[in-house]
C-alpha cells in the first residue's frame, strides 16, 4: 500500500542543547545529573529528590566512579530516578527492574548496579523477582522508596499501604494488611537490610554507602512523604508535615528484629540497620560449583577423545 506520513520533524541536536537550562552546573550535585533534566517531575514536598541526593552523596563519599555505575529502575515516580542520573541508566517495564539488573550484574561484575524503585514496583508487580534475586544473592543494591501508595497513577492502594489507610481505590479504608518490607527482604535472603525515612538523610547516606561496600543483595527501604497521593486522603498534611511526623515518631533501633518493624498508620516507625551479614553471592557459587566442574568435565572429555 501507499503510505502518506505526517511531516517529520527531524531531531535538532543543537536546538535541543539550547533547551538545556542555563542553571545546569550551578549545584555541586549537578555533575551527577543529566544535563537538561532538572527540574524533575516530582511534586513539591515529595521525598524522592532527597533519596537521589543521598545516593549521590553516598557515591561521592565512597568515590564510586560514575563510569562503573549503572542504575536500573522500574515504573512509577521512583522509576523516573534513572532518567536524572548522569550514568548508564535503564528505565525498564513495570516490576522488571530487578530481573533486568540481574542480567546486567551477572555479565558485568565490574559494574555497581543499583536498582532504584518504588514499593509498588518492587513488591507488588515485581515481588516475585525481588524475593528470587534476594535468594540468589545477586550483587544488586536495591533502594526501595516506600511512599505507601501508587503515586504516579494517582494514589492507589499498594501492598505497603497500612491497614485502614485511605487511597483512591480504598475510599473507605484499606482492608488488607501491608507487607513489612525489611522482614520480607531478610526472609528472602538479603545480606543487608536497613530502613530510614527521608528525614534521616545523613543515616540514609551512611546506609547506602555501607551497601556499596557489601557484595550481594542489599536492601534499603526509604520511607518518603507523598503529600499528593497518600498525604491528602489520609489528612497527613503537606510533605513538610509528614517530615515533622517522621521526626516525632521515628525510633532508631539498629539491629532490631525485622519481624517487629511493621509500619502502621500514624504510629511509631522503627528505623535503623536491621541486618548485616555475609553470604557468598550468586557468581561466587556459580564459579565454584558450576563453572569449575563444567570445565573439568570438558577437559576430561577432550582427553578421552584424543586418546
Amino acid at each position: 500500500m501507499k503510505v502518506r506520513y505526517r511531516a517529520l520533524h527531524p531531531f535538532d541536536k543543537e536546538a535541543e542543547e539550547r533547551h538545556i537550562q542555563e542553571d545546569h552546573g550551578l549545584h555541586p550535585y549537578d555533575e551527577y545529573l543529566k544535563p537538561g533534566r532538572i527540574p524533575h517531575i516530582w511534586c513539591p514536598g515529595c521525598g524522592l529528590g532527597i533519596v537521589v541526593t543521598a545516593f549521590i552523596e553516598a557515591m561521592k563519599q565512597k568515590n564510586v566512579p560514575v563510569a562503573q555505575s549503572a542504575v536500573v529502575s522500574g515504573i512509577g515516580c521512583t522509576g523516573r530516578v534513572a532518567g536524572y542520573l548522569d550514568m548508564d541508566t535503564y528505565h525498564t517495564t513495570h516490576g522488571r527492574a530487578i530481573p533486568f539488573a540481574t542480567g546486567l550484574a551477572l555479565v558485568r561484575q565490574d559494574l555497581i548496579v543499583t536498582v532504584f524503585s518504588g514499593d509498588g514496583d518492587l513488591f507488588a508487580i515485581g515481588g516475585n523477582h525481588l524475593i528470587h534475586a534476594a535468594r540468589r544473592n545477586v550483587n544488586l543494591k536495591v533502594i526501595c522508596v516506600n511512599n505507601f501508595n501508587y503515586g504516579m497513577t494517582g494514589g492507589q492502594v499498594a501492598p505497603t499501604t497500612p491497614i485502614d489507610a485511605r487511597t483512591s481505590t480504598t475510599p473507605f479504608g484499606n482492608a488488607e494488611p501491608s507487607f513489612n518490607l525489611p522482614h520480607l527482604a531478610h526472609a528472602a535472603g538479603a545480606v543487608y537490610v536497613a530502613r530510614w525515612t527521608t528525614y534521616h538523610a545523613r543515616q540514609l547516606v551512611h546506609s547506602i554507602s555501607q551497601a556499596f561496600d557489601k557484595k550481594g543483595f542489599t536492601f534499603v527501604e526509604v520511607v518518603a512523604p507523598c503529600p499528593t497521593g497518600f498525604g491528602r486522603p489520609n489528612k497527613l498534611g503537606s510533605g513538610l508535615d509528614e517530615m515533622r511526623h517522621y521526626r516525632e515518631v521515628c525510633e532508631v533501633r539498629n539491629g532490631a528484629d525485622p519481624s517487629e518493624v511493621e509500619i502502621r498508620l500514624r504510629e511509631k516507625i522503627i528505623v535503623g540497620t536491621f541486618v548485616d551479614v555475609e553470604r557468598p553471592d550468586f557468581m561466587e557459587h556459580y564459579q565454584s560449583l558450576v563453572v569449575a566442574r563444567a570445565q573439568a568435565k570438558a577437559k576430561s572429555k577432550g582427553k578421552g577423545k584424543a586418546a
Binding site: 536500573v72 548508564d88 535503564y90 525498564t92 517495564t93 522488571r96 530487578i98 530481573p99 533486568f100 539488573a101 540481574t102 542480567g103 546486567l104 550484574a105 551477572l106 555479565v107 558485568r108 559494574l111 516475585n128 523477582h129 528470587h132 550468586f282
Partner: peptide
Amino acid sequence: IQMEDEIASMAAILGASWGG
C-alpha cells in the same frame, strides 16, 4: 541462569545485552 518466570528471563537477557 534459570529465572523465576519468563517475564524475568526476557528482562534478564535485555539487561545482559546492555552489559555487552
